[in-house]
Design a protein around this nucleic acid. Structure first.
Lengths: 99, 99
DNA sequence: CAAATACGTAACCTACTGGTTACATATCTA
DNA sequence: TAGATATGTAACCAGTAGGTTACGTATTTG
């Protein structure tokens, strides 16, 4: 889970993920809109891959990157736990306001 | 948002947050179950505070730490965006399976 | 008031991050 | 097959993170 949140902590990586929701892409294509070099993007992709957020599939000399759902699950579940806490707090507040 | 995900990337900080769902606590109390020193916890709290995840209120010589909802919202919203993407994918898959 | 308590801050050290440049590798293409 | 293309890996570098020790400070308490 460290790896997931840590991966999401970088704005470039979040933007990469967001752009991947429009469909799989290649490293070159992903690097284009950023000022970053292809190598920098390659490193980011390695981080994202290690966190289980993307997968790379080599086809010939090109590479295809796509989103993976595996990594997100735990992170979302953790935040859910926190949200349930707030919900309980809000419920308790509403309860008190009624009396 | 960088600050939020970055703050959540550390297991000690996540554990601090989880323990705060049982109610507000003091730095000394939070440090106890960890091997970490009070100073280390103090630094973690500063990070959590900067990310808008906790608030500290000084009362006399003691301090009270409590969860804040502010920071989590954006992070949860971002993950929601990702989840909507998966949902669309799953829907599309279901659609195709029906035909 | 003096000692103890509950912190916070500063300085320092090591390890990791993100970026760059340089180089290696594999595969199309002319 | 030579050259261009698409990408990965290695080495290095500055900046940041998390931990520790040392010290400062505001309250209690005896």
């Amino acid at each position: 889970m460290d790896a997931v949140f840590s991966a999401l902590a970088d704005p470039t990586r979040r933007e990469i993920l967001r752009r991947l929701t429009d469909g799989r892409s290649r490293p070159t294509g992903l690097a284009a809109p950023f000022d970053a070099s292809l190598q920098a993007i390659s490193k980011h992709l390695r981080v994202l891959e290690a966190a289980g957020l993307v997968a790379r599939k080599r086809e010939g000399r090109t590479n295809h990157v796509e989103l993976k759902t595996a990594g997100f699950g735990e992170a979302a579940k953790w935040l859910d736990m926190m949200e349930r806490f707030w919900q309980r707090k809000l419920d308790a507040l509403a309860e008190r306001l009624e009396h």
